[in-house]
Design a protein around this nucleic acid. Structure first.
Lengths: 241, 241
DNA sequence: TTCATACTTCGATCGTAACCGAAGCATCTC
DNA sequence: GAGATGCTTCGGTTACGATCGAAGTATGAA
C-alpha cells in the first residue's frame, strides 16, 4: 500500500472549515490580508494566521508583503482549478452549505470563479459564443475559431496577446450552481476584465458575486444573445463524463 | 461568507490518511471487501468499517452486498476523476509519500488509474496515438479521428459501441508520475480491457501496478511506437493550463 | 521617540474524531 | 443445529489539532 501521491495531506488542508472558507474567499481572485481572511473564515487573527501558515506550507497559498500588510492569494491557477473541481463535485453530490443565505441568488446569477465569470451569466456567455460559432466544442475541449477571434477582437480582446501566455486560451469549467460548463482559461479571464474595464460590472465587497449595472446588463445580454429563451443548449460537460 | 458548495466536507473525508488509503486502493478499479480495505488502510476492521460508513454517507463510495461479503467501489467515475485531479495536484506540489518503496518503479511504468492505463506506458500510448494521427489534441480536449477509429477497430475496439455510453470517449488525464497526459474516458478503459483480454497484461494482487507479460510488452510497444526514442512529444496539458 | 496597526508566536484549553477491544448480528458451511 | 467467517455496533481511551488570550515582532505614522 502507501502508493502514489499524498492526497490526504491536501485533503486535510481543505477539510478544515476555517481553511475552506479562506480558500473560498480567495477564489474571488483578489489578494486579501490576514485580517480580512480571518473575518471571512470567522476566526480570530491568531487562528487565521496559523491556518494561513499551513496553507502556505502546503503551497496552496502565496503571500506578498506590502508594508505591514500581508496579502495572500491562491498560489497559482492550478489551485483555482483544483478548488473549482472540488466545488463542482460537492455541488453535484448536493453538498451545499446548509443555509442558502440572502446572497445566494446573486451568486447564482453572476459570480467570479477565481478569475473568470461563472453562474447563470457565465453559462449564457459560453452558450452564446458556441451558438455564434465563435467557439467550437470538442469533447471536453473548447477552441476559439477564426471567426471567434475576429469577433472578440472587435470587442477589444487581444487574442494573439493571450496566446503567448502559458495558460490555455479556452478551458471549460464546471459550474456548481448551473451544473453546466462556462468559459475559463485566459480568454475567460480577459472577457471578465473587459467587462470591468468597460464599467459594465464590478465586484462586490465581501462576496464572490458580481454586480452588473443596468446599462452593463443590457449590453451584456445584447452581446451574448441566446437563440431559444433558455433552452439549455449544447455543452453539457457535467452529467456525462 | 459561507458561499457556495461545502468543500470542507469532502476535503475532510479525503483528508484522513486511512480513508485516503481506502480511496487510493479503490482507484485500482476493482471492488474490494471491507477486510481487504482495512488491510490496505492499515487499520482494524472496526475502524475501517466506520470509515467506509462515512465515505458512503458522503456518497464517495457505493457498496454491494454479496453473500456475507460487502464489496465497495468508488461511487462512480466522477469520484475517480476527482481523485485523479487531487493526485495530479499533490504530485505537482511534490507531496509524494515519503517512502518510495519497492513497488514505486512498477507503478511508474504502468498502473491502473481507476479504469484506464497510466504511468509511462499510458503516456506512451497517448503520445503514439497522437503521432499516428489517431487522436487529435485540441486545447485540453482529445478527439478520435476517423483514421483512429479505423485503426482501433482493427485492434478489436468497437468505437461506435463506446460512443453510445454517456461517458466521453476520450479524456485526458494528468499523470502524477509522468506529469504528462494519458488517455482516459471510455476509450482508455476499452483499450486497457483489451490488453487484459488478450493476455498482454494483468493486474497485480495488492497494488495498482500492472504487470505486462514479455510477449504482451513486445506487442504493446510495437503497437504504440514512438518516433523519437522518448523525446517528450506534444500533449503537455499539465504545466500550462 | 512614541504610539498604533498588522501580524506571529507561545501556551494552555478543549472538543472531536480516530482507534481498538469486546460483544453482537448476519450469512455461509458442514 | 453448531461453528466459522464477515462485518457492524458499542464503549472507553487517546491523541491531535483548532481555538483563543497574552505576549512578542515588525512596519508605519505622528
Amino acid at each position: 500500500m502507501k502508493e502514489g501521491p499524498d492526497i490526504a495531506q491536501i485533503g486535510s488542508l481543505i477539510g478544515d472549515p476555517a481553511r475552506a472558507n479562506i480558500l473560498t474567499a480567495l477564489m474571488g481572485g483578489r489578494a486579501l490580508t490576514a485580517t480580512e481572511l480571518a473575518a471571512a473564515a470567522g476566526v480570530t487573527l491568531q487562528t487565521a494566521s496559523a491556518h494561513l501558515a499551513k496553507l502556505e506550507a502546503g503551497s496552496l497559498l502565496a503571500q506578498r508583503k506590502q508594508g505591514r500588510h500581508r496579502y495572500f492569494t491562491l498560489a497559482d491557477d492550478r489551485v483555482g482549478k483544483l478548488l473549482e473541481g472540488i466545488m463542482g463535485f460537492a455541488a453535484s453530490r448536493g453538498h451545499l452549505r446548509h443555509r442558502p443565505g440572502p446572497k445566494e441568488p446573486a451568486l447564482r446569477k453572476a459570480r467570479i470563479c477565481y478569475d473568470h465569470l461563472a453562474g447563470d451569466y457565465g453559462v449564457r456567455m459560453l452558450d452564446s459564443l458556441v451558438e455564434a460559432g465563435a467557439i467550437s466544442v470538442m469533447g471536453e475541449g473548447l477552441n476559439l475559431t477564426a471567426r471567434g477571434e475576429k469577433h472578440l477582437g472587435s470587442i477589444g480582446i487581444d487574442v494573439s496577446g493571450l496566446r503567448s501566455s502559458r495558460r490555455p486560451l479556452c478551458r471549460s469549467c464546471l459550474d456548481w450552481s448551473e451544473r453546466r460548463a462556462h468559459l475559463a482559461g485566459s480568454l475567460g479571464k480577459a472577457l471578465l476584465s473587459n467587462f470591468f474595464d468597460k464599467g459594465w460590472a464590478r465586484r462586490t465587497e465581501n462576496s464572490r458575486s458580481i454586480f452588473f449595472t443596468p446599462e452593463g446588463e443590457r449590453r451584456f445580454l445584447a452581446l451574448f444573445p441566446l437563440e431559444i429563451g433558455d433552452g439549455k443548449p449544447k455543452p453539457e460537460l457535467d452529467e456525462k463524463h
